[in-house]
């Protein structure tokens, strides 16, 4: 039941005298309705994460790359990390 899946907004319709924004969201072929009440700035063509009939987050395409770049990045940062080891332990952030 905790499943949340990303899909693309195909169209948006106003319901309840404009109070409620409902979207048709396509999940690779299957289309379902999702409420956009928690994503006021979501628009047609945006990718959103939908959970039990409610869109809860926009998928950030820039950030989506990071998982693929992470390994390269840590490769490059290797030396910096070594420097870190000589500094006082324990990160404050």
């Amino acid at each position: 039941m905790c499943l949340a899946i990303p899909g693309k907004i195909k169209s948006i319709e106003l319901q309840h005298n404009g109070l409620v924004r409902m979207a048709k969201v396509s999940f690779g072929g299957i289309t379902k309705e999702a409420s956009l009440e928690m994503l006021p700035d979501a628009d047609v063509d945006d990718y959103v994460l939908v959970h039990v009939g409610v869109a809860i987050s926009k998928v950030n395409e820039e950030e989506a790359k990071k998982t693929f770049e992470y390994l390269e990045e840590i490769g490059e940062l290797g030396e910096l990390e070594d420097v870190d080891d000589y500094l006082p332990k324990k990160d404050e952030s």
Binding site: M38, L39, I56, S57, V59, K66, D84, K89, K90, D91
Partner: peptide
């Protein structure tokens, strides 16, 4: 990586979906 470096902090692997402040509209609801 944190454990081996003796660090303890919060990191966000899922940044394509999770914003630091979360979904404030949903929190209001």
């Amino acid at each position: 990586r944190q454990l081996e470096a003796n660090k303890a902090k919060v990191e966000n692997q899922y940044s394509r979906i999770v914003k630091e402040e979360g979904n404030t509209e949903a929190q209001k609801m």
